[in-house]
Simulated assay, not measured.
Amino acid sequence: MSQNPFLISPGALAEIIGRTGLSIVDASWYLPAQGRHAKAEFEAGHVPGAVFFDQDDIVDPGASLPHTLPPPDVFADKVGALGLCETDTLVVYDGMGLFSAPRVWWMLRTFGARDVRILDGGYPAWIEGGHPVETGPMAPTPRSFTPTFDREAVAGLEDMREFVANGERTIVDARPSDRFSGSVPEPRPGVRSGHMPGSANLPFLQLQENGRLKSESDLRALMEAAGVKPDAPAVTSCGSGVTAAVINLAFETLGNRDVKLYDGSWSEWGAASDTDVESGR
């Protein structure tokens, strides 16, 4: 396994594939503009034994926002149906390398999974390494997932109002710089452009190279250049709560465990009528 305790290399995964207590999760998800279809791609080819984690389905069924974290019992039912158990070693990957897998890595850990890794380089690295591929739909054997919800890992709208008002936590926004600055419109109708007052911008793409998380020294330097203290309490945000988790992964890689994720992210803050929005850098 990689020196980073949250990553596993394709070669290391290939050596242990099929072992009892190992579950593999395809967490691929794409923006509409990307024109890719995650489930169809999964059925066309995936890591042997993997199950498909649908990030548009494993959500709060009563929420109006995209990707809202489900209640613990809903999460447990959904992932249990995928054959996942909180005591397994869970390896998560996506079809872009490092895009949507960190969100599922974060979700699984937030609900009590004890050992969750991200495949370093994702499915592209698996293919590049010449490892075997399985095709067709999944056929998991349901199991029991017992959730232990970590409320402290999640920030809601009222939490964010407090963080903006008192500066208790650094707010780190993973969206591209043009969306953060408000120089381009948001892709979701009814959502204002700009950012939360006092927040810092650290586009998630800056944290990776060829679909792999950058080195600890590079991550630290990038945070400091963005005005983010790597060891200080923080909360991450993005468009809908998916790519924010890339920043959570970076913080945890640097040893910072005091980081929340704003689940509603800009889809919630930018759509609210009573939240302050700034533009510019």
Rank of each mutant, 00 (worst) to 15 (best):
T275F: 14
G241Y: 07
D231S: 06
A27Q: 04
D150P: 01
W106H: 05
A153L: 02
I58W: 09
V172K: 02
H46P: 06
Q206S: 12
M1H: 12
F145E: 03
P137W: 08
W269D: 09
H131G: 04
D26E: 09
G270M: 01
T89K: 14
Y93L: 03
T146M: 02
P142I: 04
S183Y: 01
A14Q: 14
P48Q: 09
E216Q: 02
I171R: 11
T68G: 00
G182A: 05
H67M: 02
R192G: 00
P233I: 06
G83E: 10
I171S: 09
R281D: 10
P72E: 03
A139Q: 11
S217I: 07
G167P: 07
P10S: 11
G49W: 11
W29Y: 12
T275E: 13
K260N: 06
S265K: 06
H195T: 04
K39F: 14
G198L: 04
L108V: 03
V154G: 05
A50Y: 11
P203M: 02
N201T: 06
M196E: 13
A232V: 02
L13K: 13
P72M: 03
G49A: 08
N256I: 13
G62M: 04
E216P: 00
A27Y: 08
F145W: 09
F251T: 11
P70Q: 07
Y93C: 07
D150F: 01
A101T: 02
T89E: 15
Q55V: 04
L31M: 15
A174C: 09
T68E: 15
V133N: 01
A33E: 15
